[in-house]
């Protein structure tokens, strides 16, 4: 009797342990499958979120005008297509720059963005100053800071002259770092 009970008990224990072992195993496998499938699914989701960081920075030369349209000493607003000028961006496919025909016959293309917080600076022809409407930033005609909070001079685009056409190279929106 005793021995039988013992054997039965032992058998039952073994079965329980096996069951526990099996249950634990199945749970782990299930959770692992869930985790892996969730991780795989997360890849395109995260990719959509950080897509702008994964794309490559491309640049293009854009023609902004003929050399004769810009008399020496003038600073004029020019427009050009951005690097990633998708049709569906509507009016936002284009950016602007201040193109200056310097006294030494060279051209300089200034970004319109104030280096303080990015507001669009306007060229005041008679005062020969770039003035920002937001926080009082002012620049001289050569782009150096004249007054106000801007930490840096006006950023410039690269300019070249190709068959009497003035071209500038697209660049990302100028961001001021510390």
């Amino acid at each position: 009797m005793n021995t039988n009970d013992d054997i039965e008990l032992k058998l039952k224990q073994e079965a329980d342990e096996a069951n526990i072992g099996r249950a634990e195993f199945i749970t782990r496998v299930s959770l692992s499958i869930a985790a892996i499938s969730a991780a795989v699914m997360a890849v395109p989701v995260v990719a959509a979120l950080v897509a702008p960081l994964l794309e490559r920075n491309r640049t293009f030369w854009r023609t902004v005008g003929h050399i004769d349209d810009f008399p020496v000493g003038t600073t004029r607003l020019v427009n050009f297509d951005n690097a990633d000028a998708e049709q569906y961006a509507g009016m936002l496919t284009r950016s602007a720059a201040w193109l200056r025909h310097n006294e030494d016959q060279t051209f300089t293309a200034f970004a319109v963005n104030c280096t303080h917080l990015g507001c669009p600076v306007r060229w005041e022809e008679k005062a020969q100053l770039f003035m920002c409407p937001c926080h009082g930033g002012v620049y001289y005609k050569d782009g150096t800071v004249a007054a106000g909070p801007p930490p840096k001079r006006l950023p410039e685009y690269k300019v070249r002259i190709n068959n009497q056409e003035i071209q500038l190279e697209t660049a990302p929106l100028p961001i001021t770092n510390i």
């Binding site: 897509a51 951005n82 990633d84 936002l92 496919t93 697209t170 990302p172 929106l173 770092n177």
Partner: peptide
């Protein structure tokens, strides 16, 4: 510091303000 340009790019969804 360090990651500012990337954060700005992430916010705008690209080089400049655009379709995205």
């Amino acid at each position: 510091p360090f990651i500012g340009t990337y954060l700005a790019r992430l916010l705008l969804g690209g080089d400049t303000i655009g379709g995205q």
